[in-house]
């Protein structure tokens, strides 16, 4: 079997064993379920940022598109879980193609600012249509609606397995892309988009496709997050939720499959710890961003890959 496949399967097995052997306390089990879904969001972000080299500051838009599409359809329209997730995937694919079409008219710094602004509009729209979305307060998805093929998704153990399944699905998509010739072209665009163009690749359409894949995975993760944890609120559409995946990916290593997971675990516990000490715990995010940009541009797995294991995808 291939080395990279072994690495990722064993990482997933560790996550599975932690649960099977009952090593988790309830507290950490809940945390890890959240981390896994958030890391799936990070995987989506990484496709665009880590592999294609496009830095979006507005992915909260895609995450919340999925979150609200599934949440609202369950809350207002009594959709079942399967239907709501399919709807969420469709809507986030649609929104990411629209945003991609518009934002890709710009490059570099302008791309970052434009994505940031679009995301801010989504946030303001959620507040503006408060009668439907319940604005800042958000809404709770009742336990009775969170049943999937008679599995109660609010049960902590089932929730953990679901989260692990969601995460596994996303990293296998990521692995497959990284190994495909499509993925190689994305990396070529990241490394030198001018050259990729002159080799005859339609760089714009590759970028657009990358945004759609990235946005759809992010939306899928958002939908799962709402359903597994039963809450949908405008806080998930704030700038912070665009910055989080960027930070996870930077810490774990941009363009590595497991980077987002490593980054998410690290940041989740760091913030968890800091929020016991101060209300201003988001200062941790600020400090981490500076440390990463000043001293550790490659991130953890990126550094490992650079120094020792060139084969890490």
């Amino acid at each position: 079997m291939r080395k990279d496949l072994i690495l990722h399967l064993s990482a997933l097995s560790v996550l599975l064993l932690l649960e099977l052997l009952g090593i988790f306390s309830d507290y950490h089990q809940g945390n890890f379920a959240r981390i896994l879904v958030l890391a799936a969001y990070g995987v989506g972000y990484n496709i665009l940022f880590g592999y294609t080299g496009l830095l979006s500051l507005g992915h909260a838009l895609f995450f919340s598109a999925g979150l609200y599409a599934s949440g609202l359809s369950v809350y207002h329209l009594d959709y079942d879980i399967g239907q709501s997730i399919i709807l969420a995937i469709g809507i986030s694919a649609f929104i990411s193609s629209l945003i991609g079409f518009l934002a890709l008219r710009t490059i570099g710094v302008s791309f970052m600012i434009v994505t940031l602004m679009f995301s801010q509009i989504a946030y303001l729209s959620i507040l503006y249509f408060g009668s439907i979305t319940r604005g800042d307060e958000g809404f709770v998805i009742q336990q009775s609606s969170r049943i999937f093929f008679s599995l109660d998704l609010s049960n902590p153990t089932i929730r953990y397995y679901s989260a692990l399944l969601i995460f596994s699905l996303c990293i296998f998509i990521n692995l497959w892309i990284a190994k495909s010739s499509f993925g190689r072209v994305l990396v070529a665009i990241r490394e030198n988009s001018d050259r990729a163009l002159m080799l005859g690749y339609n760089v714009q359409s590759y970028k657009l496709l990358s945004i759609i894949i990235s946005g759809t995975i992010s939306g899928f993760a958002g939908a799962c997050y709402g359903i597994l944890f039963g809450y949908v609120g405008a806080s998930f559409a704030t700038v912070s939720y665009s910055i989080f995946p960027l930070l996870w990916v930077l810490i774990g290593g941009a363009g590595t499959v497991l980077g987002p997971l490593v980054g998410a675990i690290f940041m989740f516990y760091l913030i968890d710890y800091a929020s016991d000490i101060t209300d201003a715990y988001m200062i941790i995010v600020g400090v981490s961003l500076l440390i990463v940009t000043l001293f550790a541009r490659r991130g953890l797995l990126g550094e490992l890959r650079y120094r020792f294991f060139k084969w890490i995808p």
Binding site: E191, N192, D194, R195, L197, M198, G200, Y201, N202
Partner: peptide
């Protein structure tokens, strides 16, 4: 026609400044 179509019709171009994918 856009660049990529011209390339696939059979025009190749190499850059003045070395322009390869250094990390590959």
């Amino acid at each position: 026609l856009p660049v990529y179509t011209r390339i696939s019709m059979g025009i190749g171009y190499t850059f003045q400044i070395t322009s390869i994918f250094f990390n590959l």
